[in-house]
């Protein structure tokens, strides 16, 4: 029989899994919805009856899987046209990048910058930030937990702002329907892009920042 090394056996008790001073260490579970503290042995919050666990279960796995899905959706969102403008029977499809290029060529640098930031920089930055958070939470040893929590907060805050592109298309499609003269049709990229925003927001919501704070004490 192989006996475990003494150092490991003394360190491997349940309280060591969680950060010092945390509710989980004290045997309590903080409900993510109503912030009521319930005994960790319970499966449901004693106050609002939501399902609880000391940390979101498989948080990194769920976050990463949603993230990969959203990244895959981001490809068709950029390749296919987000809308098709039809002027006097002449159809011209435009992609997200195409819109930015169009405004640049017209000299409207400010609008081009707004669209470029909202629909290209923000989604990509959000995906990279979440991927980095997952990587830091699982693989890295000396992490700056304070900075990473701030990164998470920024990611969560900017999440819904990439929806701008979808709303712009929704408004243009509703407004510009002049029969025989000019009309705008939605493109498949709009669905893909809405999916990207939805999935990255869900992915951010599923990430549990508390695991970052648990990690710091392990070194």
């Amino acid at each position: 029989m192989v006996s475990p090394t003494p150092i490991d056996s003394s360190k491997e008790n349940t309280t060591d899994k969680y950060a010092q001073g945390s509710a989980a260490e004290a045997g309590l579970t903080n409900c993510r919805l109503c912030h009521h503290l319930t005994d960790s042995r319970e499966q449901h919050c004693q106050y609002c009856n939501a399902q609880i666990s000391p940390r979101v279960q498989r948080s990194v796995q769920i976050t990463l899987s949603l993230l990969i899905t959203s990244f895959l959706l981001y490809i068709p969102a950029n390749i296919y046209p987000i809308m098709t403008t039809e002027v006097l029977g002449d159809r011209s499809p435009s992609t997200i990048i195409g819109g930015v290029v169009l405004f640049l060529s017209h000299g409207s640098y400010f609008i081009a910058a707004v669209i470029f930031i909202a629909s290209i920089i923000v989604p990509l930055a959000k995906m990279f930030a979440l991927a980095w958070l997952c990587y830091a939470a699982t693989c890295r040893q000396n992490i700056d937990k304070y900075e990473l929590t701030r990164l998470y907060r920024i990611t969560e805050f900017i999440g819904k702002w990439s929806m701008v592109d979808v709303y712009v298309v929704a408004i243009l499609v509703a407004l510009i329907q002049l029969t025989g003269l000019m009309s705008i049709q939605v493109g498949i990229a709009a669905s893909a892009f809405a999916g990207v925003v939805l999935l990255t927001m869900l992915s951010a919501l599923m990430f549990d920042t508390r695991i970052l704070w648990d990690k710091a004490i392990k070194k």
Partner: peptide, 20 residues
């Protein structure tokens, strides 16, 4: 391990789980 009855804290931070 302390449990809810003898715990003086009534709140935990949602982001880092610190008892407050």
């Amino acid at each position: 391990m302390a449990h809810s009855d003898d715990c003086q804290y009534n709140y935990a931070c949602a982001e880092c789980d610190l008892l407050i």
